[in-house]
Amino acid sequence: MSVTSQNVGPVIHYKEVATLSSFQCPILKPTNYTVWATRIKTILEENGLWEMIEPLETTEPDVKKDKTITAYLFQSLPEDLVLQVAKCKSAKEIWGTLKTRHVGVDRVQKSQLQTHKSEFELLQMKEDESIDSFTAKLNAIVSRAYGLGSTLDESTLVRKLLNSVPEKFIKIVASIEQYSDLDEMTLDETIGRLKTFEERIKSKISSLVENQDKLMFTRHNGNHGRGQ
């Protein structure tokens, strides 16, 4: 038994739809293409389907897999987009059409990549900024570049982070560079060590402020007693 969406192309079988139930496909919107594409790609990879979008030399055509990918994509598209891509002959063509629509032609894409590259190179952590806030900015730039087909290896991100933090982190940065292999170190590990050091700084500042308050309170009481 099968169910057919009116005017939306290939037939999607119930058996195929059942395999989609464990994943909630995000809906593509005009402003979320990068995140949407990343999530859909992960779902397809998990199900061994991504090779139909980016085939290897040994990848053979598979009609069933192609229809399954189409089912995923149709689930994640608003109605107007479904109707626009329904005439595409394969899931790969649907994916390419959506990418072209949202990413732009090659010339525009290169321009966008250059912009993200400049943002990445100029990004520096402010003195009063937290590690979490800064790494969120860093990851946002990386994600946008990834959506345009550009990837940065882990060691590049680690070095960028270490070179971007303020001078108050110089001790931990020096320790990491001296005792760790930056080519093997992950970004998450680097963030974790910087955050630990950040918490120690906050704790010391908090303790210092508390001690100063106590000292001022003691002096105030002493002066008040002498006055009496």
Rank of each mutant, 00 (worst) to 15 (best):
V3K: 06
S5A: 15
S5N: 12
S5G: 10
Q6A: 14
V8K: 15
G9A: 01
P10N: 02
V11Y: 02
I12L: 11
I12W: 01
H13N: 07
E16Y: 03
E16C: 06
A18L: 14
S21D: 10
S21F: 15
S21M: 13
Q24D: 01
Q24E: 09
Q24G: 12
I27M: 12
I27Y: 06
L28K: 12
Y33H: 06
T34F: 10
T34A: 14
A37C: 04
T38G: 03
T38V: 07
R39D: 02
R39F: 01
I40F: 10
T42A: 15
I43M: 10
I43R: 07
I43C: 03
I43H: 00
N47L: 09
N47I: 02
G48Q: 01
E51D: 13
E54H: 04
L56I: 06
E57I: 01
T59P: 00
E60A: 13
P61F: 14
P61R: 12
V63S: 14
K65E: 08
D66M: 08
K67E: 05
K67S: 00
T68N: 08
Y72I: 00
L73T: 01
L73D: 00
L77V: 05
P78D: 00
D80M: 05
V82A: 11
A86I: 01
K87H: 08
K89V: 04
S90I: 09
K92N: 00
T100F: 10
R101Y: 02
H102P: 02
H102L: 03
V103Y: 04
V103W: 00
G104M: 06
V105N: 14
Q109K: 14
T115V: 13
K117Y: 09
L122N: 07
Q124W: 02
E127C: 11
D132R: 15
D132C: 08
D132S: 15
S133G: 09
T135R: 08
L138C: 01
I141D: 06
Y146E: 12
D153W: 04
L161R: 03
L161S: 11
S164L: 00
P166D: 01
F169I: 04
I170L: 07
V173S: 11
V173G: 04
E177M: 02
Q178A: 15
S180C: 13
D181S: 08
L182V: 09
D183H: 11
E184Y: 07
E184A: 11
T186S: 15
D188Q: 14
E189L: 10
E189G: 11
T190K: 04
I191D: 05
R193N: 12
L194R: 03
K195L: 11
E198I: 03
E199Q: 13
K204L: 09
S206E: 10
E210T: 01
E210K: 07
D213V: 03
L215A: 15
H220W: 07
N221S: 11
N221M: 12
G227E: 12
